[in-house]
């Protein structure tokens, strides 16, 4: 990795990264809550299932991300689908089978899997 030698270099890198993340052509991000709590609830299997399904279907421009705790311990494992230009969707109580349903319905066909949707309970800065 290249070193950041000045504050200006950091600002430029931030611009670039933020632009990539927010661009209309950005990858669809499937975020799996994988802190200790999520993993204990089975998020590891969910992650593998999602990664496997993406490979199997040969989906492009879709990436699966290991993130930390989303806070909804009551509905772990949790998965959030972030499509560029759309409101993100949070799913709760996901298991390997439900993860495949989410991929096939939401990612492939654009149909939100309503039964599994969790209301996002918080506001956040930026």
């Amino acid at each position: 990795m290249k070193k950041i030698k000045s504050f200006d270099e950091l600002k430029k890198l931030r611009e670039k990264q933020a632009a990539e993340l927010n661009s209309p052509d950005a990858e669809t991000r499937i975020i799996v809550g994988m802190a200790t709590c999520g993993i204990a609830a089975g998020a590891g299997d969910v992650f593998d299932s999602i990664a496997g399904e993406i490979m199997k279907l040969g989906l492009e421009n879709v990436t699966v991300v290991r993130a930390g705790c989303m806070g909804a311990c009551h509905s772990e494992p949790t998965v959030e689908v972030v499509k560029p230009g759309e409101e993100s969707v949070l799913y709760g109580n996901v298991d390997s089978a439900r993860a495949k349903v989410i991929i096939n319905n939401h990612i492939v066909r654009g149909d939100v899997v309503k039964d599994l949707v969790l209301e996002k309970a918080y506001d956040t800065i930026s």
Partner: peptide, 14 residues
């Protein structure tokens, strides 16, 4: 709820 300390938790790849 309003997140400051947790703003990146569950959002970014740590």
């Amino acid at each position: 709820q309003f997140r400051i300390a947790l703003k990146n938790c569950g959002v970014i790849d740590p």
